[in-house]
């Protein structure tokens, strides 16, 4: 039900045609900025391994903004905008599940954006994916594990959002923006200054994006030195371990923040921002 509610909120503001245009134009434009930047400097040489690295990383990163921010944004939306969070809290439902359900709608719209971006890349922008060589099992296992990890990170942000005022809208965006850099979404981590790289190695999104690239374009993705010495299985193990770690922390932080918000009467606070 929460997922359905989220979908209705996300999509019912306009007619289907405008919604489709909105869903297509936004992700394609974001990807096109990178394609043009790449095209200018490489003078149109799209055969370099860096191109699929950038394009695929950017395409799948849409999930980070959509799922993680989607879960935490539900708190802002329900508390400040619709003023319904207090009713959700007194209803006989499990709040973390409700918030995760709201994130599902963003997962659906995010999936549409990812699909459109990938399709545009393959059809018009010379992104070479040989579907016969794609490791589908690795792809789906990684995708599902990553989406669950992102949803749990979203729960962590939702907890923090419950306890702050006036700037809760920025929390998700700033976290997603920082992860974009530290995870090497659109450039290999080796480009970062050496002292910043360990942050990237600690982020599950780094391994998630690497595995997605490897499952789709195989050896092309493995050409970069950052994680070249690790096998797919080793990276999957690291991703699973980090997801478990961050997932546990997220649930723990949410519980603490939720208790604090109830204690301080923050559930129905509106700040008009």
């Amino acid at each position: 039900m929460a997922a359905w509610l989220g979908w209705v909120i996300e999509s019912n503001w306009t007619d289907p045609f405008l919604f489709a245009v909105y869903s297509i134009v936004k992700p394609i434009s974001g990807a096109a900025i990178l394609v043009i930047m790449y095209g200018i400097i490489s003078q149109g040489n799209y055969d370099n391994a860096l191109f699929p690295y950038i394009y695929l990383g950017n395409a799948f990163y849409i999930y980070v903004g959509a799922v993680m921010t989607g879960v935490s944004w539900a708190v802002v939306d329900d508390r400040e905008h619709y003023k319904t969070l207090k009713y959700m809290y007194i209803a006989p439902i499990y709040i973390p599940l409700y918030l995760l359900g709201r994130g599902v709608a963003r997962f659906i719209t995010g999936s549409i954006a990812v699909f459109i971006t990938l399709a545009a890349g393959i059809l018009f922008l010379n992104v070479k994916i040989n579907f016969a060589e794609v490791d589908w099992l690795l792809f789906f296992v990684t995708l599902i594990l990553g989406v669950v990890m992102l949803a749990l990170l979203g729960l962590l942000l939702a907890g923090i959002t419950l306890t702050v005022a006036r700037h809760e809208g920025f929390i998700g965006e700033a976290t997603a923006g920082a992860l974009y850099i530290f995870s090497g979404a659109v450039f290999p981590l080796d480009v970062l200054p050496e002292w910043i790289r360990p942050i990237g190695y600690f982020m599950p999104t780094t391994y998630w994006l690497e595995l997605l690239r490897r499952s789709l374009v195989g050896n092309v993705a493995q050409a970069f030195p950052t994680l070249a010495s690790f096998s797919n299985l080793e990276i999957l193990g690291i991703l699973f371990g980090l997801s478990l770690f961050f997932g546990t922390i997220s649930i723990w932080v949410f519980k603490i923040c939720d208790a604090r918000a109830r204690e301080l009467g923050l559930i129905d606070r509106t700040t008009n921002y």
């Binding site: 930047m37 400097i41 006036r166 920025f170 700033a174 923006g177 450039f187």
Partner: peptide
Amino acid sequence: REVSWLVFDLIMPMLAVIAYVFVYRALNA
């Protein structure tokens, strides 16, 4: 007066700038 807004207002555009700078660096632009 809302210092956190000021910080976020500065950080948000910088995040995109940093990412795109490193893309150009990766491309040896």
